[in-house]
Simulated scan of single mutants.
Amino acid sequence: MKRITATLALLSLAASAPAQHPLYFGADLSFANEMQDCGAQFRLGGKSVDPFALIKRKGGNLARIRIWNNPTRTHYSNLADVERSIRRAKAAGLQVLLDFHYSDDWADGDKQYPPAAWAGLDTAAQAKALHDYTRYVLDTLAAAGLTPELVQVGNEINHELFSGTRVEIDWTRNAALINAGLRAVRESAAAAHKPIRIMLHIAQPENAEPWFAAAAKAGVTDYDVIGLSYYKKWSKEPMSGLGDTIARLSKAYGKDVVLVETAYPYTVKATPGANNLLGEDSIDPAYPATPQGQAAYMKDVTRVVLKAGGRGVVYWAPDWIPSSCTKSAGGPVNWENATWFDRDHAWEALPVVDFMRERSVP
């Protein structure tokens, strides 16, 4: 009888224990549709390869996809394009992280401009618009059998949502906007009977702890994952500092922490017509800008994340290679030297792709 009682107690404890979520390894493939429609070719072993399938083949399990409200400079990153990307991801056996930028163009750690249709609204109306749009997108995806496993409520939301480049945050207003998005995700997940984990995402580790402390004080608490960006060019922290921040955030908030954006160049050699965003100012002396240096950097940053208790690493824009219609705000593509594909060898996959197999902790 005592043995039965003990067994029942253990089963009860197991049932009440939080679910163990997987490690997330993968990449943001928001450019893949556009690049391939415009003639870009990705290769592995000299043969054409689907970048979504490549993630899976190399040990990854996640594709991150961005969505803009009403993009006017491109026909991509709208809802139709997102549906196409999620279908590709799921066909490859990947989970999906849907990244709401809540803008018609880039929203990031330097700027948070509202969609044009929401710009003149007061806070209450903007919160309602954000809620209703989030709910519409997720309900539409659910109806098509494309519910993402994770959702970002905002992209690199260091600044107050819809505040442009203003540095000061009105946390009463910001909390109202963020919480409107959180509620919409929870509601859609419940209606679809599909679990969705929610991420809040801050650029550069040195900005994360003050932001999340202020968010908690303002009542922003109903999320599951902390997402961080870490780029040598824009962060004051060494790789070890990233690990320390991850460990402290995990302990303070009891959330999974994922390095959801990072990248490293495999060359800094100039290309005619391109102004590469990650140049000499992005190089850590320990990791030369070579295919081997890029691979070593990603292996080591992954090990730092895992050792600190982080739950994954996601590479940004490994698919943004030149094509017949590749454009950025400054002209031709400026990321080709930080992709997963070698411009000097017919866009052959580089050794960096193997970081997704990294599971050891130093």
Rank of each mutant, 00 (worst) to 15 (best):
G60T: 11
R57C: 00
G109I: 03
K128W: 01
S163P: 05
R88T: 00
F100G: 02
Q152A: 09
K111E: 00
G60F: 10
F52Q: 05
A89V: 11
E160V: 15
W118Q: 08
K56I: 06
A124S: 09
I157L: 07
R64L: 02
L141N: 06
K128G: 02
E149K: 14
F100Y: 05
P71M: 10
A125N: 05
L62S: 01
L97H: 02
V151W: 05
Q112W: 01
D108P: 02
Q126A: 04
P114Q: 07
Y113F: 13
L94H: 05
Q112L: 00
L161R: 12
G145Y: 12
D110S: 10
K128Q: 06
N158D: 09
A119T: 14
R84I: 05
A119M: 11
R66T: 12
G120C: 04
V82D: 02
T134I: 10
R64P: 08
R87Y: 06
Y113S: 12
H101P: 03
D104Q: 04
I157E: 00
L146P: 14
A143K: 15
Y76N: 04
S85K: 15
A91W: 07
L138V: 07
D139R: 10
R57L: 05
A80G: 07
S85T: 12
D132Q: 14
L121F: 15
R64H: 00
I55P: 10
N61M: 08
L97D: 00
L97K: 00
K90D: 00
A117S: 14
K56N: 01
I67P: 04
Q126G: 07
R57F: 04
G59W: 02
L141C: 09
D99S: 01
H159L: 13
N158V: 11
L141F: 11
P148V: 12
D110R: 10
R84T: 12
D110C: 08
D108S: 04
G93N: 07
N69S: 14
N61W: 09
G120L: 03
W118G: 10
Q112P: 02
K90R: 13
D99Q: 01
A92V: 13
L121W: 13
I67W: 01
Y133D: 11
Y76V: 10
H131M: 02
G93Y: 13
V82N: 04
A125C: 05
A80C: 03
L146R: 14
K58M: 12
I65P: 03
L150S: 05
K111A: 11
Q95R: 03
F162I: 10
F100R: 01
K111V: 13
L150Y: 14
W68P: 01
L161K: 12
L97G: 00
R66G: 04
R66P: 13
A143Y: 11
I55L: 15
F100C: 00
N70M: 06
G93I: 13
A144R: 15
L54S: 14
N155I: 06
L150R: 08
N155S: 09
R66K: 09
A92S: 12
L98K: 05
Y136K: 09
G120Q: 04
D110A: 06
R87G: 00
R135A: 10
R88Y: 03
T74V: 00
R87K: 14
R84G: 00
A107I: 06
A142S: 15
N70V: 14
A119K: 15
N70K: 15
Y136F: 10
K56F: 06
R57Y: 06
A80Y: 07
S85N: 12
T123Q: 02
T140E: 08
